[in-house]
């Protein structure tokens, strides 16, 4: 038996918002530790890795590991039936082929139940080692969102350059060129407003803005975002989900021909 209850449907809605543009179907892997999901986009250029630890739930029970194969669009439609303040419970039998969503209104006067068929999803899992990166940039999530949106009006690729001076985002296209520079401001009082750059050496990498714009759909989940970069390795874009999990995106760099 798997059963997990979260106090606010809004959180699960935000998580779905953050994956639905990249992933069509995904296995939600449930264990006694929590729920995780790893899925690549159809062109295998990017990957999303989600972790929601059990301590983020009001109630959590998972008698044995179970993979819930879910069509993300179907789940998004069902979650749209919940109010943001509703409590939501997910429930699945060990050998079952459905997952049941129960929404309870804050005043407990309305209870809705939706059953969704599970899918058999044969997905490739990638082994991603935790590693130190050459440079990391932590910045307000809304700032990163704005930069990706603004530079998309100029070009398709952004060059991210980290130097002692700060981090520079540059895009160029037929109409011209745009450059946005952020300086380290780790002395700002409000932690969520800080730009904190760590760097072992200067580096410059290029990434497809189309995918970065998909990643910024997670902006509502966190105040800050951290970009981790190493030459010739995929970029990691991480949004922490309170203290109980994260959503990480990986994007393969563009390679010079």
């Amino acid at each position: 038996m798997f059963e997990a209850r979260m106090a606010q449907a809004a959180l699960l809605k935000k998580v779905l918002e953050a994956v639905k543009d990249l992933v069509t179907d995904a296995n939600w892997d449930c264990t006694s530790a929590g729920i995780s999901l790893q899925a690549m986009d159809s062109s295998h250029v990017s990957l999303v890795s989600l972790l929601m630890r059990k301590d983020g739930f009001d109630m959590y029970r998972c008698d044995r590991p179970i993979s819930l194969g879910i069509n993300i669009a179907s789940m998004t439609k069902i979650m749209k039936c919940a109010n943001n303040n509703d409590a939501v419970t997910l429930r699945a039998e060990d050998e079952g082929d459905t997952v049941v969503f129960t929404f309870e209104s804050a005043d407990q006067e309305k209870v809705s139940e939706f059953e969704m068929k599970l899918m058999d999803i044969d997905s490739e899992h990638l082994g991603i080692p935790e590693r130190e990166h050459t440079a990391t940039v932590k910045m307000p999530a809304s700032e990163f969102h704005g930069i990706c949106r603004d530079l998309s009006t100029i070009g398709e690729t952004v060059q991210v350059s980290v130097t002692k001076e700060g981090v520079q985002f540059t895009a160029s296209g037929d109409t011209g060129k745009g450059t946005i520079t952020l300086r380290n401001n780790s002395s700002v009082d409000e932690e969520s407003q800080q730009v904190v750059i760590t760097m072992q050496e200067e580096l410059s990498l290029s990434f497809a803005l189309r995918y970065l714009n998909f990643f910024t759909k997670a902006t509502a989940l966190a105040d800050s975002v951290t970009l981790s970069m190493t030459a010739d390795l995929p970029l990691v874009v991480e949004y922490r989900i309170e203290d109980t999990g994260y959503i990480r995106y990986f994007l393969a760099p563009k390679i010079d021909d």
Partner: peptide
């Protein structure tokens, strides 16, 4: 010019 890398070439498929 540049080409878009794929993740499969960076991480091991389990």
């Amino acid at each position: 010019t540049s080409t878009q890398g794929r993740l499969d070439s960076f991480f091991k498929v389990l």
